[in-house]
Amino acid sequence: MKDFKHPLFDEVIHYKKIGSTMNEANRLIKSQQIAGNFLLIADKQTSGIGRKGNSWFSPNGGIWLTAALYGVSIESSLTIFTGICLHKSLCDTFPQLQTELKIKWPNDIFLRNRKLAGILTNYLQFFKYHLIGIGINSNVDKIPEEISQTAISLKKVLGEEINNEKILKIFFDIFAAELPSFVEGTLDRNYFLRHSFLLGKKIVLDTDFDRFTGIVKGIDKKGALLLELKPGMIQPFLAGTVTKFYL
């Protein structure tokens, strides 16, 4: 993907190997070595980052990137919006999987009850940059034993080589086309609900303050999870980690 370009970005930088594209984006911005919208893509990450500082397995073959958007004012959840766009692009690319691909709040794409892709967003307020990290197990040949029950690879499911550049082009085409309406305050909640992995399920949600158990009822207009803690009592959660769900 070293020659990948997209009109959304002023600059695209490709790395054969890097610790973390998210860390590198932070470094470039804070050292003022880059300007405008930019995209960092790596063939391999040695220190990929997930939510809560968790490591992210990022070998050769997958899609590992950080997109940086400058000067965009965003009120709703950029993570949810990105997840919707990524789900749409994967369904467009692999229509045979569209009934099995699901969006798991707040930041994952699931396939056959296992994680296919993850999203990590961050806002550098002083520099006016939104960062979007995306990892997709596309052409990953082997999932490590320790995560084999929770992660999945497109190549293993379809039994063929995956065109990573095609996935990226379709994703960023959709993202760029829908970004203006999202910035204006429109979050496609109906699409999210139609393809939600957790909707109607009983889950355990850990927040920075407490642990909650309830039934997922959807999301609000800002992307907060709506959790029914007891009959008639629905509470929104803007952040949290789903530590358990019941199929």
Rank of each mutant, 00 (worst) to 15 (best):
G83F: 12
T121K: 13
D43Y: 01
F192I: 11
H87S: 12
L8D: 04
T79N: 06
L225N: 07
P180E: 04
A151H: 13
L238K: 15
G48N: 04
A42I: 09
H87Q: 04
P236N: 13
P106Y: 00
V72Y: 12
L229P: 03
G240W: 08
I170Y: 01
A151R: 10
S196T: 04
F127R: 14
I134P: 04
E161T: 15
R114H: 02
K88W: 01
S148H: 03
K88H: 02
K244D: 12
S181C: 01
I84T: 04
N54M: 03
G36Y: 01
F192M: 10
T93L: 03
K2E: 15
Q32K: 15
W64C: 08
A68R: 08
S138R: 09
G133K: 05
Q45M: 04
G200Q: 12
L86K: 02
V72N: 07
S58C: 09
S181D: 14
Q45G: 10
G50M: 12
K156I: 13
S47R: 14
F182M: 09
L205C: 05
N26I: 15
F81K: 13
S76H: 15
F81Q: 03
P7V: 02
Q149W: 00
D206H: 12
P180K: 08
L238V: 09
S76F: 00
F38A: 07
E228A: 11
H195V: 07
R211D: 02
N60F: 14
I234M: 11
K30L: 15
G50V: 03
I174C: 00
D92M: 09
G118Q: 02
L116V: 12
G83L: 10
E11W: 09
D141I: 04
A151C: 13
I219H: 11
I132D: 12
F237M: 11
T213H: 05
F171D: 00
S73N: 13
K217S: 06
R194G: 02
G214Y: 06
G53T: 03
L65Q: 01
D206A: 15
V72T: 12
F172S: 08
E100H: 15
G19C: 08
I109M: 09
N164C: 13
Q33M: 13
S55W: 03
P95T: 08
I80F: 00
I234F: 11
I136P: 00
I13T: 14
K128Q: 15
I74Y: 08
L168T: 07
L158S: 09
P231Q: 12
K156V: 07
Y123E: 04
D188P: 03
T150E: 06
L111Y: 07
T207F: 13
I132N: 11
F127T: 07
F237A: 06
E145P: 00
T150S: 11
K230E: 15
Y246R: 08
L97K: 05
E161P: 01
A177L: 05
P180H: 03
K201W: 00
